[in-house]
Computed example of a mutant assay.
Amino acid sequence: MDSTAAAPAFRDATDADVDALVALVESAYRGDSSRAGWTTEADIIEGQRTDREGVLEVVKSPDSRLLTVEQDGRIVACCQLEHRGDHAYFGMFAVSPALQGAGLGKTVLAEAERQAGQTWGVTEMHMTVISVRDDLIAWYERRGYGRTGKMTPFPYGDERAGVPQRDDLQFELLVKPLV
């Protein structure tokens, strides 16, 4: 982040944020705009990453929060936190492609972990990552997440999750102790 930018401000998303959050998530993962950052999935999955209904569901769910990050008056990052008993699930993580690689993602992840532990008293953070995303998995490993080898299938045929460009996609569970 450049030194003239305001510090990021964290807050829970509201209904009014939904369209901006969908645009942010799509820009970080899909299409040509995502290629400006390093988290793109454009070469392995086409189509949408999320939609208005999916984001609104997270915003409205009593067990979830959509942590929204604003900087200089605009939404620049977000992540989902969902309370699941003794752990929290971390998902829908997106950083504006123009800001990727400058440390904002590390800041957001650390704040998400802090808030999940403080709000729900959970002892672990769980997430799933597409198993062929070696660079992304390595990034999480450097932040204390461990690979579990536990896989779940990619939802082939559900275009709400995108249109896969290869037939070997699955999600791996990554886990980090928070205490």
Rank of each mutant, 00 (worst) to 15 (best):
G117V: 01
V132I: 12
E141D: 07
K106E: 15
Q115G: 09
L169N: 00
D158V: 09
Q100V: 05
G105C: 10
D134H: 13
D167N: 09
E159K: 11
Q165S: 08
W139V: 06
E113F: 11
L174S: 07
Y89L: 11
G146I: 02
R114T: 06
R114W: 05
R74S: 15
R84V: 06
L174P: 09
Q115R: 15
E113H: 15
Q165L: 15
I75S: 03
A98Y: 09
D168W: 06
V108R: 12
A88S: 03
T128W: 01
Q165H: 09
L173G: 02
G144H: 08
Q115E: 15
S96Y: 07
V129T: 06
I137H: 05
V175Q: 09
L174Q: 06
D167H: 10
G157R: 14
A161L: 08
S96C: 12
Y145H: 08
D168M: 01
G91E: 04
Q118E: 15
E82W: 00
R143C: 01
T123N: 07
G101C: 06
T123H: 12
V122Q: 02
V76C: 13
T152K: 14
G162D: 11
I130V: 03
V76H: 13
Y140S: 12
G85E: 03
G144Q: 03
A102L: 13
V108S: 07
V175W: 04
L136K: 00
P97C: 06
R114M: 05
Q165C: 12
Y156C: 12
G157D: 10
L169W: 00
D134F: 03
D135N: 14
K150Y: 09
M125T: 00
Q80M: 10
E124H: 12
Y145G: 06
M151C: 04
R114D: 02
T148C: 07
V129W: 04
M92F: 09
R114Q: 06
Q80Y: 02
Q71D: 08
L99C: 13
M127K: 08
Q71V: 11
H87S: 10
V163G: 05
G149Q: 04
M151L: 15
T123L: 02
E82Q: 08
E172P: 01
V76S: 08
G117Y: 11
P155C: 13
D72N: 15
D72V: 12
A112M: 13
G105Q: 11
R84F: 00
D135F: 02
C79K: 02
L169Q: 05
